[in-house]
Nucleic acid binder design. Structure first.
Length: 524
RNA sequence: GCGGACGUAACUCAAUGGUAGAGUGCCAGCCUUCCAUGCUGGAUGUUGAGGGUUCGAGUCCCUUCGUCCGCUCCA
């Protein structure tokens, strides 16, 4: 999450949004009848369809027709192919990727201040000769206020001091004063926080069969890079996309579905020549921002969405650039929470997997290298660079829900969901104005027709009970963009009214034009 | 993992240690020719779970699970 000084819109009530999501069947707590399970959430009927719509939109706009048919920075159409890789990979995949090392951070807690510190980040000021005798020594965290404060105290006690790692001191640390504590001896022994879930493959429970649930889908793509090259005719530059579930054993799942322990990612790894990678990075970064706006996060002039370029010191050593698409969630406002990261990863991952697997992953680019007398090129072998737009689909759903949630007490239906028609789980409602005089029959016929044509995109609902106002209000709450109503005139002139969710305004169109109308509105 | 707050119907919330309720929603029927506000009736709870104190616990105590806030974490 990051802060920004731009003008914040008044934060919506997260409690109201969560209540609506439960009430209307967007999101349920996982295993709710057993008391729930921390960090896991299920989708109800509307949520499941909505998330599918988001996933489909990503699949269509990133893989099947990338970037809406636009050319890339090389002047050619962007090319991408899909894969579907497994949650469980060979354990060495995660050693190569650095996750096995980096995901196991020992922590120490301070019993006095309740502070928690990365064990390997804690340093200690001790006397220069290393012998503190019976006196306490002073722990600190680099680059925090504790450093200067503890340095001052240490110098007062010992005069000349030096800094050593906490890990170099023998336990228990009875004479160590924790970074923000007053008294010595408050630090616990280091404890491991396993951020990757593990499991055992095979029937025999044996540590040697230990496997991990993936913390990201990306590695499955890198691991299959060579197969994709070898078994398709696709050429660099191109992308490989993958959607699927990942797991992170978050220390503190928080903020509704925002930080869940099980979540779905939509990741593209776009491979290109090193010389072109900076251009592709900028291209994808800008397109991804544009895409989120196009599916419904562009409200308020897009003011709740920002593209945040990482500072140089935030970047991994191999990266030439990383940006986050961030949304101003009600629980992060006035700050922002990450929806998607677009990272220039260089050839780090392919290099790692090549080294660990001992399999050559170089690409033979036959369109580069010196021109030969026969008119062909000598070719150039290289490890492609990679640009990675990695989106969180569950976070996307949550952002779209937060953005869509609208409270307007001047409306008959004060709470409604302003979903983009492409994302809305319910695409249309078909109602008889009153439940008699032949109207229900006409409505049922139109409902059947629309259902047959649009079931791939979402639900078409119908309802003849209660007043028309109540039925419109129900549709507003579900975020259904259009309602078609059969009234007395329909029976004589074959027209229906179309009600627009956001304005409440109506127009009449021919009943035979309804499918065409809807089709046009649902297009990307 | 620590500290704090909270947990009652599908939702929002009441209930002095003394018979678990309301509004909304939902269902049925009636009435209804365009925006939840017309009428009648109906269903729904082991008060998150488990234990304890008490003649009696939604209420007090303990344990546990979950949610929210802060710390921490966010590779």
């Amino acid at each position: 999450m990051s802060e920004s000084a731009s003008t914040p819109t008044p934060a919506k009530s997260m409690d109201a949004i969560m209540a609506l999501c439960k009430r209307r069947g967007f999101i349920y707590q996982a295993s709710e009848i057993y008391g729930g399970i921390n960090g896991f959430w299920d989708y109800g009927p509307l949520g499941a369809q909505m998330k599918k719509n988001l996933r489909d939109a990503w699949w269509e706009d990133m893989i099947m027709r990338p970037c809406w048919g636009r050319n890339g920075p090389d002047g050619h159409p962007v090319q991408c192919v899909p894969v579907e890789t497994r949650i469980i990979q060979h354990p060495k995949v995660w050693e190569a990727s650095g996750h096995v090392g980096g995901f196991n951070d020992p922590m120490v807690d301070c019993k006095e201040t309740r502070g928690r510190y990365r064990y390997d980040h804690v340093s200690v000021f001790v006397p220069e000769n290393g012998d503190a005798g019976d006196k306490p020594v002073f722990a600190y965290m680099g680059d925090t206020p504790s450093e200067a404060r503890q340095r001052k105290k240490a110098e007062k006690t010992f005069g000349a001091i030096k800094s050593v790692a906490l890990s170099s001191l023998p336990q228990p640390w009875a004479r160590v004063i924790a970074p923000d504590a007053e008294k010595p001896g408050s630090l616990t022994e280091p404890r491991m926080f396993n951020l990757m879930f593990d499991t055992i493959t095979g029937a025999i429970r044996d540590e040697s069969n230990k496997a991990y649930l993936r913390p990201e889908t990306a590695q499955g793509i890198f691991v299959q890079f060579k197969n994709v090259i070898d078994t398709t005719r696709i050429k660099v530059p191109f992308g490989i996309g993958n959607t699927g579930t990942s797991f992170r054993n978050e220390v503190t799942p928080r903020n509704y579905t925002f930080r869940s322990r099980e979540f779905e990612q939509a990741e593209l790894e776009f491979f290109c020549h090193p010389d072109e990678s900076a251009d592709w990075y900028k291209f994808w970064r800008d397109f991804r921002m544009e895409w989120w706006k196009a599916i419904g996060l562009g409200g308020d002039g897009g003011g709740n969405l920002i593209l945040r370029e990482h500072e140089k010191d935030e970047l991994s050593h191999y990266s030439q650039g990383t940006s986050d698409v961030e949304y101003r969630f009600p629980f992060t406002a006035p700050g922002f929470g990450e929806l998607e990261g677009i990272a220039h990863r260089g050839n780090y991952d392919l290099t790692q997997h090549q080294a660990h697997s001992k399999v050559k992953l170089e690409y033979n680019d036959t369109e580069r290298g010196e021109l030969l007398p026969n008119g062909s090129r000598r070719g150039e072998k290289y490890l492609p660079h990679c640009v990675e737009p990695a989106a969180g689909l569950d976070r996307g759903v949550l952002a779209l829900i937060c953005e869509a949630y609208t409270k307007d007490d001047s409306r008959p239906s004060p709470e409604f969901m302003k979903f983009h028609p492409r994302i809305a789980p319910v695409k249309a409602g078909v109602f008889p104005l009153v439940n008699k005089d032949g109207m229900p029959e006409v409505a049922e016929k139109l409902h059947t027709e629309l259902s047959r044509k649009f079931w791939r995109q979402g639900m078409i609902e119908t309802d003849a009970k209660q007043t028309i106002g109540k039925r419109y209000a129900r549709m507003d709450e579900a975020g259904c963009p259009f309602c078609f109503t059969i009234d007395g005139d329909t029976l004589t002139n074959q027209t229906v009214t179309v009600r627009d969710r956001d304005s409440g305004q109506q127009q009449r169109i021919g009943i035979d034009k309804v499918a065409g109308f809807l089709s046009e509105k649902l297009a990307p």
